[in-house]
């Protein structure tokens, strides 16, 4: 597979390690009253879609960027990739 790194262009997937669902960026509020339930959901429950999936890849043998890669799990078509840091920052700004 090739991952279209937003800064470095297409890079072979062998340079990356895979983590999983990009929802892991959305860490729950630890001080919320239902924090334990929210964390339980965050840690253990994942969607496993046959189709478009946003997922986290780490460019370990590269620039050490975490990427959010949008990939169709059925065709393996990669629809886009962004720096996870930018995704996280834009959510913070939106007051997620």
């Amino acid at each position: 597979m090739l991952i279209p790194h937003p800064l470095l262009g297409p890079r072979d997937a062998q340079e990356f390690t895979y983590l999983g669902d990009a929802r892991l960026i959305d860490r729950p509020d630890p001080s919320a009253p239902d924090a334990e339930a929210a964390f339980c959901d965050y840690v253990f429950l994942r969607d496993n879609p046959a189709g478009v999936h946003r997922e986290l890849w780490f460019h370990e043998q590269g620039d050490r960027s975490w990427l959010v890669v949008t990939r169709d799990t059925v065709t393996h078509e990669v629809l886009g990739a962004e720096l996870a840091r930018n995704v996280a920052l834009s959510r913070t700004r939106c007051g997620k």
Binding site: L8, Q14, E15, E60, Q61, G62, D63
Partner: peptide, 10 residues
């Protein structure tokens, strides 16, 4: 310049 793997070495 690129960081990449050579024989599994970064």
């Amino acid at each position: 310049a690129r960081r990449t793997g050579i024989e599994h070495m970064s």
